Simulated scan of single mutants.
Amino acid sequence: MTEKVLIIDDDTNLLSGIQRQFRNKFDISVAEGGEKALDMVRSEGPFAVVICDMRMPGMHGVEVLGSLKEHAPDTVRMMLTGNADQLTAIEAINEGNIFRFFTKPCPSDVLAKGIEAGLEQYRLVTAEKELLRKTLAGSVMVLTDVLSMIDTDIFGKSTRLRDWARLLAGHLKLPQPWILDLSVMLSRIGWVAIPAEVREKFKSGESLSKKENEMIQRIPETGKKWISHIPRLEPVAEIVFYQNKGFDGSGFPDDEIAGKDIPLESRVLKVLNDLAGISQDTAPTKLDFRQLDLQAQLYDPEIVQIVRQSLPKADAENRDLYFETAEVPLNLLIAGYELLSDIETKDGKLILAKHQQLTKTLLTKLRNIGEIQGIKEPIRVRKHIVRKV
């Protein structure tokens, strides 16, 4: 019994009876009234199935199910009521988007079959979403691996940003954390449209012409145009578009959007992108945050505070609890290792910049180059270690 079922009613006797009757068959929770039920959904969810009475003091059933639809769209919603008039049914179906409608008194076998059908529907919905999420994430991972081969310095930073974003997702309580994950991974895709010589001038700090500056500024717009062609990634496209927008309204794009009107994930990206440009380590230091504070008007202060509290500090003592550094030859590199030094060919050409996490695609590239041109060895890496308890 992994999926949870929530029964909502103001009749405590009915709730106790359902719990006793189905305690060995389903994982049943109960709530007396709509307000308590919604609190439980927020604090104890997700619930696979919710069955709600129609006539209750305070919030009535349609209100509860409508709110539930907004906050927990995957939950299968049902109604159990003694007021089965046609108007009630129509309202419940249209506003609460219910899956089943039961009338009191409801035979236990009918209710059990309804719950089982609801659980099966929940599994179908969540399995489809999980398949879509994994398919999109896998496709984006392949794409970013390929992009990192074009320019290791620019596209390789996406891996570090993704790791930071995943640490933040839980603290931010995002309803769909995968959206931030994909937004981070695709945030630099617009750089593909920038000529190599302009990318090199930008990275080296050389002065750019007016046209070259405009090119750089419009990178998020290019990314948005490309991402918007992918079905269901419209929110990601919008997030990428606003990733360089200052909290005070400055920056690209030049419009009137500012403050909380900027997508939340874009505000997160703005902080992470700028920290990545400052930080020379895998985690930002206090000095990095001080530099960020010099332009505090550009960042959402709440997000900056969350980032300060949740990202691991670049403290050697803390890192050594979970990681160890090593110098290893090319043939012993493993996907998941983090580079602590640049990887270069024997004649000094940069192949991969430090602070990237090795993937299977990158390892294949390195080994192919190693066979033809040779690579400087050993390579300094950080690898995860599992402490025995």
Rank of each mutant, 00 (worst) to 15 (best):
L14V: 09
L15T: 06
S16Y: 07
G17P: 00
F22W: 05
C52D: 06
V62D: 04
V62N: 02
S67D: 11
L68Y: 07
K69M: 10
N83E: 15
N83I: 12
Q86M: 15
A89G: 00
E91H: 14
S108P: 10
V110I: 13
K113N: 15
K113G: 13
G114F: 01
I115V: 09
Q121P: 03
M141I: 01
V142I: 14
D145E: 12
V146M: 14
G170P: 02
P177E: 03
W178D: 09
W178R: 01
D181V: 01
R188G: 08
I194L: 11
V198T: 08
E200N: 05
K201V: 01
K203P: 04
S207H: 11
S207W: 12
S209N: 10
K210P: 05
G251D: 00
K260I: 01
E265G: 02
S266G: 05
V268N: 01
I278V: 14
F289C: 01
Q291I: 13
A296D: 12
I306C: 10
R308I: 04
K313L: 15
A314S: 13
E317A: 15
P329M: 04
N331M: 05
Y337A: 00
I343F: 02
K346W: 08
D347P: 01
I351G: 04
K354R: 10
Q356N: 11
K360M: 15
K360W: 15
T361V: 14
L363Y: 09
K365V: 06
R367A: 09
Q373W: 13
G374E: 11
K376S: 10
H384S: 15
H384I: 12
V389A: 13
